[in-house]
Simulated scan of single mutants.
Amino acid sequence: MGAREWAGRWPVLRQLAGQDPRRDAARSARTDALVPRTATADSVARSVCPYCAVGCGQLVYVKDGKVTQIEGDPDSPISRGRLCPKGSASKQLVTRPGRVTEVLYRRPHGTGWERLDLERAMDMIADRVVETRRRTWEQTCEGEQVRRTLGIASLGGATLDNEENYLMKKLYTAMGAVQIENQARI
């Protein structure tokens, strides 16, 4: 094998010798065969990042019914295609294998979790809300009608979107709760 043939097999030597002015010598066939996950998506859905109150636009790429990639939406007037590190990692909210997808309950003073069906869990929550509201209801305070309860509070999370937080505020206000807060304001 001659010196030129030998030098032609090594990308670094081709670049140093000036035979590859565009510096494509370091590209491999595997690199050239790679395609972005977004190119093979069946559909793209527009969404809003669930983490904070900014409301950055997201493009959610779906293939075979599964989320394959989430990127910033360049058409969003708020974020113009940019996402913070949390927003960029929001794919893990729906695709992480360790994500809990069933109701887990730990009894008072219990040491382990048990699975409950959703209907039973909702009934337990409703019973506790009604009982707490009945026990802690204040009709009057210092001669004024207040019609409230201090026994129920709400702390909304930053992974809830604006609509969910709005509905929670309406629900807890209708129940008479006073302490209604959101993680984004704390």
Results as ranks from 00 to 15, higher is better:
R120K: 14
P85T: 12
G81S: 06
R23K: 13
G8W: 06
G2D: 14
T40N: 00
Q179H: 02
S79I: 07
R46C: 04
G65M: 03
T101V: 08
R4P: 06
Q145T: 13
V146N: 11
T95I: 06
A158L: 12
R23T: 04
M175V: 14
A29Y: 08
R134V: 01
I125Y: 05
Q139G: 15
G57D: 10
V12R: 07
Y172T: 06
L167R: 15
R99C: 05
P50L: 01
L104Q: 15
L160E: 04
R82I: 03
I70S: 07
L83F: 10
R107W: 01
L16W: 09
T173C: 04
P74I: 01
A126T: 10
A153R: 15
G157M: 13
C56F: 02
A89C: 08
A153Q: 07
C52T: 01
A177F: 09
V100P: 03
N165S: 15
E5N: 13
A153I: 08
S47G: 13
A29Q: 13
R46A: 13
L160D: 01
K169P: 06
E5C: 00
T31Y: 00
S76K: 01
T136Q: 11
G157V: 11
G157Y: 14
S47E: 08
S28A: 00
Y172P: 02
D42F: 03
Q183W: 00
D161M: 09
A39K: 12
A53W: 07
A3E: 00
N165Q: 08
L83R: 06
S47A: 15
R135M: 09
Y172S: 05
Q179V: 12
A29V: 14
E144N: 14
T40C: 00
C141P: 00
R135W: 06
T111E: 14
I152Y: 02
G98M: 07
C84Y: 03
G110R: 07
S76A: 02
Y61K: 01
E131W: 06
D24S: 11
N182D: 12
R46E: 13
R82N: 03
V44I: 14
T140D: 12
G72M: 00
P77Y: 01
S79E: 03
